[in-house]
Computed example of a mutant assay.
Amino acid sequence: MAPAARRNRIAIATAVLAIALVIGVVISAAIGQFPVAVTEVLGSLLNRVGLHTSWAPVEELKDQALWQIRFPRIAMAVLVGAALAIAGCVMQAIFGNPLAEPGVVGVSSGAALGAAFAIALGVTFAGAAGVAVFAFAGGVAATLLVYVTARANGRTEVVTLLLTGIAINAFAGAGLALMIFMADTASREQIIFWQLGSLNGSRWSEVAVVALLGTAAAVVAFASARRYDLLALGERTAAHLGVRVERLRVVSIVVVAVLTGAAVAYVGIIAFVGLVVPHALRMIMGPGHRALLPASALGGAVLLVFADVIARTAVTGAELPIGLITSLIGGPFFFYLLRRTRTSQGGWA
């Protein structure tokens, strides 16, 4: 594809994602058990930034519902979706594998085990944030354990990293089963619900924590975009071109741990966002990470915002776990990737 045509395709794809995100945010704010008109949503937003219009909600209750319940939830969906998609894009870059995603190195399972531990044992550290603290710590600890195990002779062996991640996931699964066995009925239900993921009850204080950690890690990922492009040429070639491959891989694993740990700490496990979004956009936009990383952030936000709308409205009077929605989308897509990879390679090596 010619460079000009590729730039046009990237620009169009980015614009479509941005427009879709705006539409998704407005729809998500308007739809719910307490319906709010689209003009009222826009008016409330404009009033908060000092642009007073006649569109603002007439009833104070609507304004409170928007700013205390729906907008924090939407902001959390945007941040978590973007963080998971960026983490997936980074994973695929450092492993050179379109099937890589954050769960591969045990971040998600480690976070789930940390959260289950806090719930089952009634940990009250840091008040209501205790579960989130343990979830984040569990995710980071699992990642560091995988990395330390896979590092040998001054370098990280990718195959060993992946195999260790599988082992950590298996161990965390056993630990989760033990926590569920030890927990009482209420805690057991909370653990299972946390594993399925939910944006319900998101608060501005939680949004601020995820935004702070996610933004810091995303900045590091964006700054590494050019080196990811060089790494795609092969480790030796990248090293000859000045890339410190081992350092890049270490930093990237830490970035993935922070992004994923922050994302799942408050909302639970949300599967397949890190797999589906960056790979789908790579097929549309090409492999250049300077465009792919920010587009993945937009795509992840769009996916999770619309998934949350479906989760809240698909069943009358009830809310589906958002992890269920993303798995229903990601499962078939993962199967498609497996078939496509096998066909293109003429069978498995």
Rank of each mutant, 00 (worst) to 15 (best):
I12C: 09
A263H: 03
P57F: 04
N153F: 14
W67L: 06
A83G: 11
A100M: 14
F193V: 14
S327Y: 02
A314C: 09
L79G: 04
A65N: 04
A65F: 08
V58D: 09
I310L: 09
G214N: 06
V131W: 00
A115G: 13
L163D: 09
P102Q: 11
G242K: 06
V131H: 02
I31R: 11
G103T: 06
L293K: 01
I168D: 05
H289W: 01
V243H: 06
A132G: 04
R7Q: 15
H279S: 07
L298H: 00
A93I: 08
F136L: 07
A271H: 02
A30R: 02
V305N: 04
A112I: 09
P102H: 03
G114L: 08
R155E: 12
L230S: 13
R249E: 11
G165L: 07
G299M: 01
R7N: 11
R339T: 11
I19K: 02
V36Q: 00
I253W: 00
G214T: 10
G122H: 05
T343I: 12
H240N: 15
D229E: 15
R339S: 11
A141H: 03
I166R: 02
H52A: 13
T160C: 09
V148Q: 08
L293T: 00
V148R: 11
L178H: 09
T164C: 12
S198A: 13
G114T: 06
R48C: 03
R290S: 12
G127L: 04
V219G: 05
T260I: 07
V305I: 08
E60C: 00
L337A: 03
T237S: 15
R247W: 14
I12D: 05
T237W: 07
A271Y: 00
W204F: 13
L213N: 08
F335S: 06
R7T: 14
G96F: 13
A150M: 13
V25N: 01
A83L: 08
R342D: 11
A172K: 03
G130N: 08
T53Q: 04
R6F: 09
G32L: 10
P35A: 04
A221I: 14
L51A: 09
F333T: 06
L196A: 15
H289R: 02
G234K: 12
G286I: 06
G175S: 12
K62T: 01
A152L: 14
P287R: 03
A111V: 11
A311T: 02
D308H: 03
T215L: 15
P35K: 03
I27D: 00
L320I: 11
V250I: 15
G323A: 08
F95W: 10
G317H: 08
L304E: 02
Q195G: 15
L230A: 14
L162A: 14
G43R: 00
L338C: 08
R9W: 11
